[in-house]
Amino acid sequence: MWTRVSDFDRMFTAMDQLRSRMNRLFWDFDRSYGNDYGWVVAEGAPRTNLYDVGNHFEIRAEVPGMTREDLNIRIQGNYLEISGTRKADAPEGYQAHRVERGAGSFTRSFTLPAEVDTEKAEASLKDGILTLSLPKSEAAKPKQITIN
């Protein structure tokens, strides 16, 4: 009897493996249409991440191929606006076989969860990722409360 159960079990294991392999098949198929992960201006604006790090917010945005001069950042209270232009970098005298990378300009605005201290805001650009560090205003910072 026990051996029979183990046979069933083995069969289910094999079926599980088959199922996960099938799932991966579709996943691999989708991969070839990875264009949604590319940077296309037509889609609107670069993707961003917002992290809340206690005393400050950190915003990261994908801006491949853009330099400091191409980007504009404006903050007012809890309103943030990132705009930029990506220039077409097609080389002179070449024949184009495939052009998937978009060029153009974008503007994206955000309402931050709290007001930020605009004076101390910092921005950096590395490997096509824009990182903004926005310290929260005094009122928005987390406070430690001591028990009397």
Binding site: P64, G93, Y94, A96, H97
Partner: peptide, 21 residues
């Protein structure tokens, strides 16, 4: 995912750009 690419060619070379932020 597949990065988006541009491919150019002239008489000397093929030039490939890929966005990998």
């Amino acid at each position: 995912v597949a990065p988006v690419v541009d491919i150019y060619e002239n008489t000397d070379e093929i030039l490939l750009y890929a966005d990998m932020p």
